[in-house]
Simulated assay, not measured.
Amino acid sequence: MTRSAHIAGAGIAGLATAVALSAQGWTIRVFERSPDLRTTGGGIGITPNGMLALDAIGVGDAVRARAVTQHEGGVRAPGGRWIARSGLRFIEERYGESIRALPRLDLVKALADALPPGTVHYGARVEPVAAGDAKARAVIKVDGAEVESDLVIGADGVRSALRQAMHPQHPGLRGTGSVSWRCVVPADGLTLVAAETWGSGLRLSILPLPGGEVHFSALAKLGGRRTSEDGPGPLFGRWHDPIPQLLERSTREHMFFDRIEELVRPIDSFYDNRVVLVGDAAHPMTPNVGSANLALEDAVELAYAVAQAQSWSELQAGLATYDQSRRPRTSRLSTMSRWMGRFAELSSPIAVAARNSGIWLGGFLPEAVSRRSMDAMVQWSPPAIG
């Protein structure tokens, strides 16, 4: 076995996996259909588990140099009242690392810069052909030409073609009834705190970024509301400051619109013969538990599992180890993310009032709920690669 791997997708999952495997002596080629580094997504928060994964592949310090640390957070009502507020220093005390925020593009650049020159091939369209077996290598088509490798890694996102080829009978994705708008705008003159604001079937999160910028993400349940790709202004424009100012500073060309989807049910395997899935290709879920951080975990655990594989049997044993570790964790967090979203996006006035009053009066969000949910998301230890 020559220990060669072809990766479909140069997002966070694909690039992190490439960095991790390249460091273990694998020959890597990454194929990305976009003409350049992916810029979608705006800002991103890296939680302690994500930072541990980045440290494990040697990129942690580069990310810290590009990021800002989040020291406080909370939840507000549309009028501005704090429903719950919490300092975030307990996160560093509890997990040994802080939450870092940076533009998603800066994270992607840090990962790409850690790869040997020429590893990533842009403007390349990948199609699955054959998963290989003990006697034959895996085959994909890249811009119509067939190429072989010992391992093919599907990091081709939520609508993964490699996942569909691996699980042709799976029902696939379903819409959640929610849409989102994401944008990065200038932060000058604004008073900013990392926080979410919860309304009736609506929520908006604010994430301060380095370089005088701020990321916001607005989510809306469709219901009977009139929503479109034009922007969130009509739904959120009368909320508390600085939300109207953020919306005014956004432009359509820099606004990313998504319809939130998730798998109907988890797939029953992340690998088939010589093809394996990572990141959103393996476990697309609603955006409530830091799926990018889970993708970084995937990269580290896959590299650990196959780092020393020299034969078909060793490769299969490694992929089975990866699968058995990652599927239970990502399945649990997918379910948790779904319920967190439903709680935050309640639309009944009675349910919203009960939710907000319960949090405010009981104070349980910053302590019991916040810390339990944070434990579920963040408590992860990277294996020693190599």
Rank of each mutant, 00 (worst) to 15 (best):
A5P: 07
H6V: 15
H6T: 00
I7N: 13
A10K: 06
G11K: 06
I12N: 02
V19A: 10
L21Y: 04
L21W: 02
Q24H: 01
T27F: 04
E32W: 05
S34Y: 07
P35S: 09
G41I: 02
G41M: 06
G42I: 03
T47D: 10
I57H: 11
V59M: 08
R64G: 09
R66Q: 08
Q70R: 12
H71R: 14
G80T: 07
R81Y: 14
W82A: 15
W82Q: 10
A84C: 09
A84G: 10
R85L: 04
G87K: 12
G87E: 14
R94P: 03
S98F: 02
I99T: 08
A101L: 13
K109M: 06
K109T: 05
L111K: 09
D113T: 05
A114R: 07
A114G: 09
A114Y: 07
V120A: 03
V120C: 06
Y122P: 07
Y122C: 12
P128K: 09
A136G: 10
V139H: 07
K141C: 14
K141Q: 10
A145S: 09
V147G: 12
L151A: 00
A155C: 10
A155V: 07
D156G: 11
S160D: 02
A165V: 06
M166R: 09
H170K: 13
R174I: 08
R182Q: 10
D188S: 13
L192C: 11
L192R: 12
V193D: 03
L204A: 09
L204F: 13
L209R: 01
L209S: 02
L209K: 00
S217L: 13
S217K: 06
A218F: 14
A220E: 01
L222R: 15
D230T: 14
D230V: 05
G231M: 10
R238W: 05
H240I: 04
I243F: 00
R249H: 04
R252G: 13
R252T: 14
H254D: 07
E261Q: 14
E262I: 07
E262T: 14
V264M: 13
P266H: 12
I267G: 11
I267H: 01
D268K: 08
D268W: 03
F270W: 01
V278C: 11
P284D: 03
G290C: 07
A292I: 02
A292R: 00
N293R: 13
D298L: 02
V306C: 03
A309T: 00
Q310E: 00
E314L: 01
E314C: 12
E314V: 00
E314K: 00
Q324R: 09
S325L: 15
P328C: 08
R332M: 15
T335E: 13
S347D: 14
I350V: 14
A351E: 10
A351F: 09
A351M: 11
G358F: 12
I359A: 14
F364Q: 03
E367I: 15
R372P: 03
D375N: 10
D375Q: 14
S381L: 11
